[in-house]
């Protein structure tokens, strides 16, 4: 089976003045279609950076990354990889449905089709009633669910979620995860979630543990 993402000894170093600060070191791993992977590690261990590298938002300073099943790194988002962030990442000037259709429009889907897909994505996660509300009118949980809908709307093959429940209480977090898992179950997409929460990690097939210096544990 073609790997969605393949990482070989990936490393990432940040520069603080003249000091090199390693964030990730020698990380090797792969994501296959349908995978459910939790990335766990303490704060500052490089979980977010790893997801950014996997999403093509950042480049490794050492090692190699490729997307065998997804193609050119310049065309990963939004159709092939969807992203969900820790805090609400909705654009404040746009309503929920406009936020959801945005990646589709960015991907040059016709506006009418994009709107239909956005409505369906919201409907799929039970949020059609708040489609015309602005982000500031939504609760934290609702906003994150809209963000999930946005990530799903373009039917990506891989979803990268960076602590999507980090700002939510436990029941809301569980509910969001239910929604996310149900949606990818339906779409067949792979999911990589960065999290601190063992309860979330328990619901994944695989867990990648990362130590503080960004090295892979298992």
């Amino acid at each position: 089976m073609n790997e969605l993402v393949r990482m070989d000894a990936v490393g990432r170093v940040w520069m603080q003045g003249k000091t090199r600060v390693p964030v990730i070191a020698f990380f090797t791993g792969a994501v296959l279609p349908g995978d459910r992977i939790a990335v766990m590690g303490p704060s500052g261990s490089g979980k977010s950076t790893l997801l950014h590298i996997m999403g093509g938002l950042d480049a490794p300073t050492s090692g190699h990354i490729s997307w065998p099943a997804l193609g050119d790194a310049r065309h990963l988002r939004p159709q092939k990889i969807g992203m969900v962030f820790q805090m609400t990442s909705l654009l404040a000037p746009l309503t929920a449905v406009e936020n959801v259709e945005l990646p589709l429009l960015v991907g040059n889907v016709a506006p009418v089709e994009a709107r239909a897909a956005a409505v369906k994505a919201l409907d799929d996660i039970g949020l059609i009633s708040i489609a015309d509300k602005f982000p500031e009118e939504l609760s934290g949980g609702q906003a994150q669910r809209v963000a999930v809908a946005r990530a799903l709307a373009s039917r990506p093959k891989l979803i990268l979620a960076d602590e999507p429940t980090g700002q939510l209480d436990h029941p809301t977090a569980q509910h969001l995860l239910d929604v996310l898992l149900a949606a990818i179950e339906y779409s067949g997409a792979a999911l990589v979630v960065a999290t601190h929460d063992p309860a979330i990690a328990d619901r994944m097939q695989t867990v990648w543990h990362i130590r503080r210096n960004g090295q892979e544990e298992a």
């Binding site: 999403g55 938002l57 990963l76 988002r77 939004p78 159709q79 992203m83 962030f85 990442s89 909705l90 654009l91 404040a92 000037p93 945005l102 990646p103 960015v106 991907g107 946005r150």
Partner: peptide, 11 residues
Amino acid sequence: RNFAILEALGA
């Protein structure tokens, strides 16, 4: 912030 989100979404 908005531009960062847009870029993350693939714009």
